[in-house]
Nucleic acid binder design. Structure first.
Length: 462
RNA sequence: GGAGAGGUGGCAGAGUGGUCGAAUGCGGCAGACUCGAAAUCUGUUGAAGGGUCAAACCUUCCGAGGGUUCGAAUCCCUCCCUCUCCGCCA
């Protein structure tokens, strides 16, 4: 039975060095892979109550209609495949008669032809019905979120998220006159919102001078750390097609969130998670290639529909922002351990920068669509006296692997299994810059450069 | 953008209407020979769905979608992708 996120066995992680193969079975078609992916239909069939209950922890989802459609579809499939078998027989029989000397236009062959036409007529009636059913099932399945992990706490919304730990209290700056990062940045003339709005729209920024350099230093530093930790750096396309967005779970439900280039069926990627997931779409990886650990710096583009009025100032919520993403393809039995390691790798960046943060475990009501379990890292922003999300580290189990059809095969064994995928920001660069500016600001208006960034920026002060 | 060629199993590469899920080679796996290995020989070797306790068995898949036909990898249409040459261009 395919392991399914919410019922894993905790086995020791098997960490072989991820060897990169230039793969294999690269299906060339661009539409999303065949199968009904997403939640496992077999599981819904065989463990209906348990699946329904697990899904119910996330909100109101009713699997009953799906179950009925599935039943109808399988009945039809049975009938259809019998008819097709008969049709194949007839076809072969005709060929054989003709080969053995029967008159191609004689009554014997003609009788077979007539029956063939009858079968075809019956098929012509069944086929569209089954196709419609399959389409309906697919639509329902694509709209269902991942099942939460058994270890994910129950809750309605973000107010019921659970704080796991805090780090860096001793680095929290004290004082009355702590400024928000946009004031610091404007005073230093390192970013410019007015001109960015002129160039594009509101919610864009132009980084200037040492601000641009600081951004570059931050993501370079992050990439260096991650590659030292064994992640393979990727620079993927920033435009992605519809199949890719479906594979990683952004579509069809969240089309409002991404910018689209209509005439080309391409979207601006909202996160490197999308292209990196799809690196291996429709592939069967050799088991010994796992785990695969990737990191990628990319700009991210989000429409932020429905967030009018929130975080209108500063670097917190922009239509375009930079992010370094970590991503893992792993064997199912290792994904929980890999998840913990992923969070630790994201925390390592904040710790190196000496930025105070806390780790939050999301409750079922706040969990993202594709995740079965998520930890958010929230960094301290002294100007508002709050922690703000700067990283989100999720275990997607086999959810994305089903959608994107990413499997692995054990050498010498028969079948294939879905991989598990994990993703985490490491980190959101713009928000990291905001946190650096606010936490390292000095009473005289200058900003100290964090120690680990000084070799990159080649200066101690901004 | 213009002109041409092409997309077949892990790879290479046959196959132009019927016994083709698809020759052959390589690779992989198993066995024989060997103290062991290499070489050689023999066998085996795709995925998905249904079905079964498990099998047997049935269906689908030769870039994708549609059409012709009793029957399509093979013929027709549309689309996608790759390669070569020309143009343009970082």
């Amino acid at each position: 039975m395919a392991p399914c996120g919410w019922q894993e066995t905790g086995q020791p992680p098997l960490l072989t060095p991820g060897l990169l193969l230039g793969c294999q079975s690269l299906a060339r078609h661009s539409r999303c892979s065949s199968g009904d992916a997403v939640l496992d239909l077999k599981q819904i069939r065989q463990q209906f109550d348990a699946t329904q209950a697990a899904l119910g922890r996330r909100g109101a989802y009713d699997l009953q209609p799906l179950r009925q459609l599935d039943q109808q579809q399988r009945e039809l499939e049975g009938q259809r495949s019998q008819l097709q078998a008969r049709s194949n027989e007839i076809g072969k029989a005709v060929g054989q008669r003709i080969r053995t000397g029967a008159d191609p236009n004689g009554p014997e062959v003609q009788a077979l032809r007539d029956e063939g036409n009858q079968v075809k007529a019956q098929l012509a009636e069944l086929e569209p019905r089954e196709k419609d059913l399959k389409g309906d099932i697919e639509t329902l399945l694509l709209g269902l979120p991942n099942l939460p992990s058994a270890t994910t706490p129950d809750g309605q919304d973000e107010s019921e998220n659970v704080e796991v730990r805090r780090w860096g209290d001793e680095y929290i700056p004290q004082g009355d006159a702590l400024k928000p990062h946009w004031e610091i940045g404007e005073a230093l003339e390192i970013f410019n919102f007015e001109r960015a709005t002129k160039i594009a729209q509101s919610r864009f920024v132009a980084l200037m001078g040492v601000g641009a350099a600081l951004e570059r230093a931050l993501f370079t530093f992050m990439l260096d750390r991650h590659t030292q930790h064994g992640y393979t750096e990727v620079m993927p396309p920033y435009l992605v097609n519809t199949a890719s967005l479906t594979g990683s779970g952004q579509l069809p439900k969240f089309s409002e969130e991404s910018f689209k280039c209509d005439r080309d069926d391409l979207w601006l990627s909202p996160t490197a998670e999308v292209p990196v997931t799809n690196l291996h779409r429709d592939e069967i990886l050799p088991a010994e290639a796992l785990p695969l650990h990737y990191c990628a710096y990319t700009p991210c583009f989000r429409r932020e529909a429905g967030s009018y009025g929130r975080d209108t100032r500063g670097l917190i919520r922009l239509h375009q922002f930079n992010k370094v993403e970590m991503y893992k393809f792993v064997r199912p039995e290792t994904s929980e351990a890999e998840h913990q390691a992923l969070v630790a790798d994201a925390e390592a960046i904040l710790q190196a920068l000496k930025l105070p943060y806390r780790v939050i475990e999301l409750c079922t009501g706040d969990l993202g669509f594709s995740a079965n379990k998520t930890y958010d890292l929230e960094v301290w922003l002294p100007s508002s006296g709050t922690y703000r999300e700067i990283s989100s580290c999720s275990n997607c189990g086999d959810f994305q692997a089903r959608r994107a059809n990413i499997r692995f095969k054990e050498a010498g064994q028969k079948g294939t299994q879905y991989v598990h995928t994990l993703n985490g920001s490491g980190l959101a660069v713009g928000r990291t810059m905001a946190a650096v500016l606010e936490n390292y600001q000095q009473p005289d208006g200058t900003v100290k450069v964090p120690d680990v960034l000084q070799p990159y920026l080649k200066r101690e002060w901004l």
